[in-house]
Amino acid sequence: MIVNGVSVDVADGVSVAAALMQLKIIPRRALSGEARGPLCGMGVCFECRVTIDGQPHERGCMVRAREGMEVRSDEG
């Protein structure tokens, strides 16, 4: 997985949201600029939204990290 341009190793079956949390990367900045992290972990709250392979607004918790997958957070 490539996060904000940096290649990282992620174990099989790990969700993008969990991987980012592990890396201490904030997926999303709120409208106010406040840093947010995953809340529900199950696709409900949309707080872990990131851009995945060029597609913005993807829920990181609903997507498995894959080799070569490009993830961009609001910080990236």
Binding site: S15, A18, E34, R36, G37, P38, L39, C40, C61
Partner: peptide, 21 residues
């Protein structure tokens, strides 16, 4: 409650099951 280290209870469990250490 909107700080990044505040997570759901079931939410944290789900994240752990999906790979969070």
């Amino acid at each position: 409650w909107t700080l990044p280290h505040v997570v759901g209870a079931g939410g944290l469990q789900a994240l752990v099951k999906n790979g969070l250490d």
